[in-house]
Design a protein around this nucleic acid. Structure first.
Length: 402
DNA sequence: GGATCCCGCCATAAT
DNA sequence: ATTATGGCGGGATCC
């Protein structure tokens, strides 16, 4: 009875083996965002969203929960959220960071300890040359405190809440906000988060379950460009890097910069299967992480300071803006008109972001690229969905880029 | 084959 | 009781 009408496809093209990718949470999130991130910031109805996006309500809950955790949405009532947009992110992050810091100052818990040696014997890894980014000690550190915080305030009642996607999202983000580690793998994160201190007896068993959740979260975070998927430099192990708070080159129009081939790697699941890339494949792929950037986390005062600078920048808003962290549709119109009411919020976030000192060039570029890809992908699905059959040509190009 | 992660059953929390 | 939320993990896909 819950069978929904297969939203897209149909009519015209048969074959079409089911593709999971087209139904990914990340993609859905992108659509969701483009649906609501319009000038007239209205309130969001879950029903409506589900209907408009042609998915089950269940999926909307997933997205909404993480978006809420990051300040993009705020719950108003049953079935009702208010759209805040990207402009809500800085504040949310700020609060998360503050919270995390506060939590960290409390007793350092046993969690980390347990985790640490559990780690040792589990993956008695060979730790390349740098025992450094194996199980990012930094991350363990940060998580330890977070864990302890989670431990207290346990009241059976909100036992459910404790495991909610929303909370998990926040903790996940906090991890990035507080650690010095450049990248964190979901596996690590899962082990560290929601460690529900106490006995490690029960928590060990379903790390996998947690990881599954983290995938969900990471996907929407990625689609929001708050996160980026990469690999740990030594092991090829997939991991995530926080992008949420960093500066982007303020290159208004020079976005046309030619992308270094290496950035092709971008976020998709690693290795290209494409022989055409063969030449690049080897050499210096994913150069991004050449050092352990000490960035990742905005220091709390950075944030404060930023809020100010952002505000200032808002004043003298010199137009010609690129789009925000993710601004698919308006993108094309780009420079000129930005204003509108929506212009502000994007700009707000944008300027906040740009007030952070830029990092490395490569990285900045690749991010920028990622950003574009995101917008492009979105555009693509829309078009593809929309109709015609320019699907074929596009697809190959897309695959190439991804 | 392991990493990803969609799907939707069904427990719980609101109403 | 009915409806809204959202854990949770089986198992299909992707790589």
């Amino acid at each position: 009875m819950t069978s929904l009408p297969p939203p897209y496809l149909e009519s015209g093209c048969r074959h079409h083996t089911y593709s999971r990718k087209q139904k990914s949470l990340g993609l859905l999130c992108s659509k969701f965002v483009s649906l609501y991130d319009r000038v007239d910031a209205e309130s969001v109805s879950l029903d409506d969203a589900a209907k408009r996006l042609g998915v089950e309500r269940r999926r909307i809950y997933d997205i909404v929960n993480v978006l809420e955790s990051v300040g993009v949405l705020a719950r108003k009532a049953k079935n009702r959220y208010s759209w805040i947009g990207f402009s809500g992110i800085p504040k949310a992050l700020f609060e998360l960071k503050e919270e995390a810091v506060k939590e960290m100052s409390r007793t350092d818990s046993p969690c980390a300890k347990v985790l640490e040696d559990e780690e040792d014997d589990k993956l008695s890894d060979q730790t390349g040359d740098f025992g450094d980014y194996k199980l990012n000690p930094a991350a363990v550190d940060a998580a330890s405190s977070l864990c302890s915080a989670a431990c207290r305030a346990r009241s059976v009642t909100d036992n459910r809440r404790e495991k909610s996607l929303g909370l998990l999202t926040q903790n996940f983000v906090k991890l990035f906000l507080t650690t010095d580690a450049d990248t964190v793998s979901l596996d690590e994160a899962a082990r560290l988060l929601l460690g529900d201190g106490r006995n490690s007896s029960q928590m060990r068993s379903n790390n996998a379950a947690k990881v599954r959740r983290l995938y969900d979260i990471a996907n929407v975070l990625c689609s929001m460009n708050l996160l980026e998927k990469t690999q740990q430099l030594d092991t090829r192990k997939p991991a995530f890097r926080w992008l949420g708070t960093k500066g982007k080159p303020k290159a208004d129009n020079d976005v046309t910069v030619t992308m270094p081939p290496s950035t092709k790697q971008w976020n998709k699941r690693a290795f290209g299967t494409d022989i055409t890339n063969a030449d690049y494949k080897r050499s210096k792929l994913n150069p991004p992480v050449d050092k352990k950037l000490s960035k990742a986390c905005l220091r709390i005062d950075d944030l404060k300071e930023c809020n100010l600078t952002a505000q200032k920048q808002l004043q003298n808003s010199q137009g010609g803006y690129v789009f925000g962290p993710f601004q698919p549709d308006g993108a094309s119109k780009g420079s000129g008109d930005v204003e509108e009411k929506g212009g502000n919020k994007v700009q707000d976030w944008e300027s906040l972001a740009s007030s952070f000192r830029p990092q490395y060039h490569n990285q900045a570029l690749s991010e920028l690229f990622g950003h574009y890809m995101e917008a492009w992908k979105l555009w693509y699905v829309e078009v593809a969905q929309g109709s015609r059959n320019l699907q074929q040509p596009c697809k190959s190009v897309i695959n190439q880029l991804l």
